[in-house]
Amino acid sequence: MEMAVQSKFTPWASLAGGVLIGLSAVMVMGLFGRIAGISGITGGFLGALVPMRGAPRDRDWRVAFLLGLVAAPLLMMLSGGTVAQSVPGNLGGMLAAGLLVGLGTALGSGCTSGHGVCGLARLSRRSLAAVVTFMAAGFATVFVLRHVLGTV
């Protein structure tokens, strides 16, 4: 069986991206005393917009962080670079995947960026358990989709 490689080997771009992710995580922790997990940042931002008990009041840095996630690829394209992305045509599958990811971040008290980048760096046992679970679920999903269902 021949495997199809869907992405190019980009060690320098990947290294630069990793350094920037690490730098942003350190900056968010150092400046705001918060974990740079996207689900927590987004949830806190939405909670600050909709008045509810226990909602954080630190909306501004969250807005800046989320705008940076959107602005970075746009600036890359404006500077002449390319941002390669593929989106599957299966809208139902994408919807199901999004709902499952949302459910998983709620059940796991965080997402891959919060647990994988920040939690592991803090030597959190809970984050280690979450990352092992994320990875095992990802491996199982790929195995089932490729080798059982033959869809990928």
Rank of each mutant, 00 (worst) to 15 (best):
M76V: 15
G104W: 05
L69Y: 10
L99V: 13
V101H: 01
L75M: 15
G80N: 02
L99E: 00
G89V: 03
S86A: 14
Q85D: 07
W61Y: 11
G98I: 08
A97C: 13
T82K: 04
P88M: 09
G98R: 08
R59V: 08
M76W: 11
G68K: 02
M76R: 13
P56L: 05
L91T: 14
G81T: 04
W61H: 07
G81E: 04
M76T: 15
A72H: 01
L67K: 04
T105N: 05
L74M: 07
L78Y: 01
R62C: 12
V63A: 14
A71L: 10
A71E: 09
V101F: 12
M77S: 09
V101G: 06
G80P: 07
M94S: 09
T82E: 05
L75W: 12
A64D: 05
L66W: 01
V83Q: 02
A84H: 14
G104V: 08
L95V: 11
L100W: 05
T82R: 02
S86I: 04
A97D: 05
A71Q: 07
P56N: 07
V83H: 02
P88L: 09
F65I: 08
G102A: 11
G89L: 08
A64E: 08
T105H: 06
G98M: 14
T105L: 03
M94R: 14
G102W: 09
A72Q: 10
L74H: 07
S86P: 01
N90Y: 11
A64Q: 08
A72V: 12
G81V: 09
A97S: 15
W61V: 04
G98N: 11
A72M: 12
L91G: 10
